[in-house]
Amino acid sequence: MFRTSARLGLVAVIAVLGVTGCSQGKPEAEKPRVATLIPPSASAAPSASAAPERPRQRLDDTEADYQALVKPYQKCMKAQGFADQKSGASWAEGDDVPEELRKAQDACKNFWPLPPWEMDDANPEAKDFARDTVKCLKAKGVKYVEVADDGIGISSGGKDNDSRSIALTGEYLDACQREVAAKK
C-alpha cells in the first residue's frame, strides 16, 4: 500500500513539475494573438485624403434634425461664395444651373445629406419599401397614390391632381413609412 501511494505522489510531483516547466518557457509579456481581417501593414487610422462620409437622413428625422444635417453644406456653399438658404435646398438643379454654382455644388456635394436608406436608389429593397408604403396609404383611404416613375418615390393625386388624395398622402406618408420600416 505504501508503494502505491508513493508512486501516486511521485506521479503527481512529476505532473506538477511538467506543467510548471512548460509555463515557465513562455514570457509573461506576450499577449495571446487574435485573428483579424486587418493585415499588420495596414494603418488603423484613415488617410488624410479620405473624403468625409456624407450624412444620411433618417425616416424619423424632424425638421430641426434636417436643418442640422444641411448646415455643413450651407457652410461649404457660403465658403464658395453663395449665401445661405434657410430651407437647405441645393440652390438649383438641372441644366439651367450657372457654371460657377455647379462648381460650388460639386465642391460641396460630400456635405449634402443622402436620403433615408429606405428611399435610397442604392438600396435594392427601396422599390419594395415604396410599394409597401403605397399599400399602407391606400389602406388609410388615399385613392390616387402610386409608386413614382423612378420606382422609389411616391406620387399622389393622379392625373386630375385630386386634392383629397394629395392632402391624405401628406397627412399619412410619414406614419406609413415608419410603419413599413418597422416591419422590415
Rank of each mutant, 00 (worst) to 15 (best):
F2A: 07
F2I: 10
R3N: 06
S5A: 14
L10W: 13
I14Y: 13
I14C: 13
A15Q: 08
V16Y: 08
V19W: 11
K26T: 12
K26F: 10
P27S: 12
E28P: 03
A29D: 14
E30T: 15
K31C: 05
A35Y: 12
L37D: 07
L37F: 11
L37N: 10
P40V: 10
A42M: 08
S43R: 12
A45H: 12
A45F: 12
A45T: 14
P46L: 09
S49K: 09
S49I: 04
E53S: 09
R54W: 02
R54L: 02
R58H: 11
R58E: 05
D61N: 11
T62A: 03
A64D: 06
A64I: 03
D65G: 01
Y66F: 02
A68C: 02
L69A: 00
K71Y: 03
Q74L: 03
K78N: 13
K78S: 09
A79T: 05
A79H: 00
Q80H: 01
F82Y: 03
F82R: 00
A83E: 15
A83Y: 12
D84F: 15
S87V: 11
A89F: 05
S90R: 15
D96C: 05
P98I: 07
E100F: 08
R102A: 15
A104I: 06
Q105F: 04
D106E: 14
A107M: 11
N110I: 07
W117M: 11
D120S: 10
D121F: 15
E125K: 12
A126H: 00
K127W: 02
K127G: 04
D128N: 07
F129G: 00
A130E: 04
R131N: 15
D132V: 10
D132Y: 14
D132I: 08
T133Y: 08
K135G: 13
K135W: 11
C136E: 02
K140E: 08
K143C: 02
E146P: 02
D149A: 15
G151V: 10
S155D: 13
S156W: 00
S156I: 01
G158Y: 04
G158Q: 06
D160A: 15
R164Y: 06
I166L: 00
I166D: 00
G170R: 06
Y172C: 01
L173F: 06
L173E: 00
D174A: 14
A175P: 09
C176E: 05
Q177F: 10
V180R: 00
A182L: 07
A182H: 08
